[in-house]
């Protein structure tokens, strides 16, 4: 299980949700929206990626960054 924390002032909630939608088939993803941040827990990672769980979590974070960048540019 890997826990990530996305600060709300840096990562808009829709960006986190978009990444959850993109990665949802590959892991169990729990999202808890808190005051300051959005906590994401990744577990039951697809066996194809299970031995690279850190990379999987990092790729997820890159995807959130991508979505955040996209929304910052007036898209999404």
């Amino acid at each position: 299980m890997i826990a990530l924390r996305f600060h709300r002032s840096l990562y808009p909630a829709p960006a986190v949700h978009a990444a959850v939608a993109a990665y949802g088939e590959l892991a169990r993803i729990e999202v808890e929206e808190r005051d300051e941040d959005i906590a994401v827990t990744l577990s039951d990672i697809d066996p194809d990626f299970a031995d690279q769980a850190d990379e999987f979590a990092d790729s997820f974070a890159n995807h959130v960054l991508f979505e955040a960048t996209r929304s910052e540019r007036g898209e999404a």
Binding site: F66, T69, R73, G74, E75
Partner: peptide, 8 residues
């Protein structure tokens, strides 16, 4: 491209 991150 004007609205894509990286490209804009």
């Amino acid at each position: 491209l004007d609205s894509l991150p990286g490209c804009s």
